[in-house]
Write a protein that binds this DNA or RNA. Structure first.
Lengths: 335, 335
DNA sequence: TTGTAAGCGTTATCAA
DNA sequence: TTGATAACGCTTACAA
């Protein structure tokens, strides 16, 4: 039951260890005949090279890290699905490290992860992607970084994003096309870049349509259910309440719907509710909601792809909204 | 910018490499004075031992795998949080591998993971935890396995579970204590062990209370929203409709609530709705729902703990329902 | 209690 | 196009 090593393969294929290594790493200068013999031996013995040995001897670990401190299970789930898919395609492993951005040992934990595992690259999702401390710690280690949806220092690292402004503009334009003239807006949490971007898109669409921007129609939210309830109650209590409300997240949208129901307002007949579908949440529970899907899976795939390589092969057609993918040249080659 | 090695530490502490290794591994026979000197050097140099080298030289990789094919983001999120927490406590890394239980290459993928990474142990969540093929593949590799909520072959491996029967019994008893005499039940998906267990608990509580078990009050569900809607419509259309409905999952419960609203039935005044809170979903959107919390985070923690050791230290008080934790003796020691 | 030397299974270097 | 040999950074014998 002991391990099958490269030596066993080399014996079975009657070549040197180095030649097996060449085949494994798809190096050039291996004759077709030799390659086939080696590959047969590999399959025959069910050989899997030791990652530890490859890491120690070479300069790649075939492992990438995914760091997050995100309260949304849906986001994490889809992100991991995308990153995981891209990893599997190239034989990489995904090391997931949930973290607490406010924890005192955070920097140490991340540093330890990078050093101990010798990660080939690391993906950070919001809000960690905008932590200057974390970014500084990672940069000191000269490890390829990809930030997902960075809100600041957009050109500092590789990044994968969607265009929140455009998406919010599209949704607002859609509501306008339905005939709405007074469209309320519930914003996201103050500190998040996405909040500002979505508001910008909303405003931009209104102005372009000649409807004007009325600050009274914008209520503050916090990306959660309760803030949606509160914001909707305020908006619906106005003298001239909006006929449509655009929520900055689906949890907010669910809260808006709940508030409308409480007031006996029919959705979508008397009130159109639209929202970003970050969480798949509202769609499941509340079909009357109109949503813009945030392609988190594709974001994860693109992020991993920037690390693993072959960024050109991204299937952009998968996306509800165009990804903005910026690559760095320091990404390692595919293995 | 090159790596800090054990050699650098040994020089700084003026001891041999082996002594540093002893301190790192908390071996005995190191004088207090030496240990302190080494630890200072480690901190000073910000030294992190190479996992690859430790794995290659030793017989531990300090990495455990978490395999899942579960459509519930909440489940995955909480599971990872629990496993991740336990890993961090002992310097282990968590390798997450989402999979498709129906994919042809599944067994090969899992085998490759175990062999390449030399995992110290592996955690499998439902429904993978009941796949005989996967379990056989893992057992061939003699790797410590922990199954979460196994439905079959309960004694085949280490496992972490909650008592679904007891939890459903408790919830049903609670509804009875509220005065309900006709309590509907919406079951989960047919193939899942949890479905049967929850139904058993429901029935058991009814019989004990002398209310009798009426199969007409049991409607089939599939753990999702839509099946909850359909089941509730059927139950509420009966000549003597139930005054309470116990849903086997929170998504079902959300569907039940939606159906009740559509019929103009007030919840919880005219209809009590109860459900398992697997997803945190219903609690967020619908406060009138009574739920039994499934302590997924604790399940993950316990599962990782079985692998990493020190099973005794589990905080059982965290749990809504007692965990059933069965350990094997093959778990590696803490590092 | 501490140190020396021989691996662990790969890749990198250099030679053939 | 191939192969020998020295790393890689650590742990495990085995000595001292």
């Amino acid at each position: 039951m002991s391990r099958v090593t490269i030596k066993d393969v080399s014996k079975a294929a009657r070549v040197s260890i180095k030649t097996v290594s060449r085949v494994l790493n798809k190096e050039r200068y291996v004759s077709e005949e030799t390659r086939i013999r080696v590959e047969e031996a590999v399959a025959q013995l069910n050989y899997h090279p030791s990652l530890a040995a490859r890491t120690l001897a070479g300069h790649r670990s075939f492992q990438i890290g995914l760091i997050h401190d995100n309260p949304s299970p849906f986001y994490i789930y889809n992100m991991q699905a995308g990153v995981g898919q891209r990893c599997r395609e190239s034989g990489y492993r995904m090391i997931v490290q949930p973290c607490d951005i406010a924890a005192p040992g955070l920097l140490g934990d991340i540093g330890a992860l990078v050093d101990q595992v010798q990660l080939d690259g690391i993906i950070v999702t919001p809000p960690v992607s905008d932590s200057v401390e974390v970014l500084a710690e990672l940069e000191r280690r000269r490890i390829p970084i990809v930030r997902v949806q960075p809100g600041t220092d957009l050109t500092a690292t590789s990044a994968a994003s969607i265009d929140n402004v455009q998406a919010a503009d599209d949704m607002t334009s859609y509501l306008i096309s339905l005939g709405h003239r007074r469209i309320g807006f519930v914003s996201g949490h103050a500190g998040y870049a996405a909040s500002t971007q979505r508001l910008t898109g909303y405003r931009q669409a209104l102005l372009r349509a000649g409807l004007g921007y009325d600050a009274a129609l914008v209520a503050p939210g916090r990306f959660d259910f309760q803030s949606g309830v509160e914001a909707a109650e305020a908006l619906l209590a106005m003298d001239h309440p909006p006929t449509a409300i655009f929520a900055s997240s689906d949890e907010i949208a669910a809260g808006v719907l709940a508030a409308a129901h409480r007031k006996g307002i029919a959705v979508p007949r008397d009130l159109s509710v639209a929202g970003f579908d970050d969480n798949d949440l509202a769609q499941v529970v509340w079909p009357p909601l109109t949503t813009i899907r945030q392609p988190v899976h594709a974001l994860g795939y693109a992020a991993a792809d920037l690390l693993i390589g072959a960024a050109d092969r991204i299937e952009r057609r998968l996306l509800a909204h165009e990804l903005i993918v910026r690559g760095s040249t320091s990404a390692p080659d595919e293995g």
